[in-house]
């Protein structure tokens, strides 16, 4: 039920965003001023408008847009003269690999360090990890990216500055992308782990004679994962924010950079196709997270 609802909202928000792009961009003025060079002649503009149907009333344009969408026709890129959806789908895997690796690293790190910190709240290790994760959550990703490139690529020459290639090309982008999610998740894990470790059922486990590892990783971890998963849904969206920056800085040919480029080049169809692909990805992720939630918590299963 939960994921049914969430999927619906993601679809709705996608539709909302597409509508927003469609209407706002057409209401803020003659699209030909957006798409043609400033010195284009009036005749050029008229021809352009007719070619793309911009001279029709807006509801006609919208109807055509919806019909095209239903026929899986997502328009043609103005800058590359090919299917916008093809371009978006080519870019997407690059983002997907980057983001999923980052999420996995952030998750593993957050669980490890968060649990470690929760063992003794207020202790030395906890203070240290807290400051570490707070710093992670407070650093602007683009700045870290630039500084790391300066140190490891420009000055030391150990790592490539940008582009796609072997494992070395992944190190800085991944580090930058992991930083904030790790910081945010780490604090959530810490908090929910402290909660779980102070709950009565942990006392029962101690009274049974269970070892500390068993109590942390069997009894408390599964319970403390529930709030973490709820946060992870919002976090995935955050990761894509980071991806936009990282891809721009490192020339990573993913969907984030594609979108920025499309915005700069005013390539309408590509923006819309990218939004669609991104929204679908988030939708699938939310479904996966909801399944994880149901697997972890029997109370949701029987509700």
């Amino acid at each position: 039920m939960r994921f049914f609802k969430r999927s619906l909202f993601t679809l709705l928000s996608m539709a909302g965003l597409l509508l927003l792009v469609f209407f706002l961009s057409r209401m803020t003025g003659d699209p030909s001023y957006l798409f043609l060079p400033l010195d284009a002649s009036a005749a050029d503009r008229a021809a352009f408008s007719q070619l793309h149907g911009f001279d029709d009333p807006i509801y006609v344009q919208f109807g055509r847009y919806v019909v095209d969408l239903l026929n899986l026709d997502f328009g043609t890129s103005l800058s590359q003269q090919r299917s916008a959806m093809d371009i978006a789908l080519e870019a997407f895997p690059h983002t997907l690999t980057l983001v999923s690796m980052a999420l996995a690293i952030a998750f593993a790190g957050a669980i490890l360090f968060g649990s470690l910190a929760a063992r003794k709240p207020g202790g030395m290790i906890d203070r240290l990890i807290s400051i570490l994760s707070l710093t992670g959550a407070s650093t602007p990703d683009f700045w870290v990216a630039i500084i790391l490139v300066l140190i490891f690529a420009v000055s030391l020459g150990w790592l490539p500055t940008s582009g796609v290639g072997g494992p070395l090309y992944w190190i800085i982008p991944l580090f930058v992308l992991v930083l904030r999610p790790f910081g945010l998740l780490g604090q959530v894990v810490r908090g929910s782990m402290i909660n779980a470790l102070s709950s009565p059922y942990v006392k029962t486990a101690y009274a049974k004679g269970a070892s500390e590892q068993k109590i942390i990783f069997v009894h408390a971890l599964r319970n403390s994962m529930l709030p973490v998963i709820t946060v992870a849904g919002d976090l995935a969206a955050n990761l894509l924010n980071g991806a936009v920056i990282v891809e721009t800085v490192f020339g990573w040919p993913g969907i984030g950079r594609l979108m920025i480029d499309a915005i700069m080049q005013r390539d309408f169809a590509v923006i819309q196709a990218s939004i669609l692909v991104t929204a679908c990805a988030i939708l699938i992720l939310n479904i996966l997270l909801d399944i994880a939630y149901v697997v972890l918590d029997p109370r949701v299963r029987h509700a």
Binding site: L12, S13, L17, A237, N241, G256
Partner: peptide
């Protein structure tokens, strides 16, 4: 709440980029 869920379910940076692009 439904409107909120809609806004939350899409990356804020991309939303901001698109809106800033359209509005200038």
């Amino acid at each position: 709440m439904r409107v909120t869920d809609m806004i939350m379910s899409f990356p804020s940076m991309l939303t901001a980029l698109v809106v800033l692009y359209v509005l200038g």
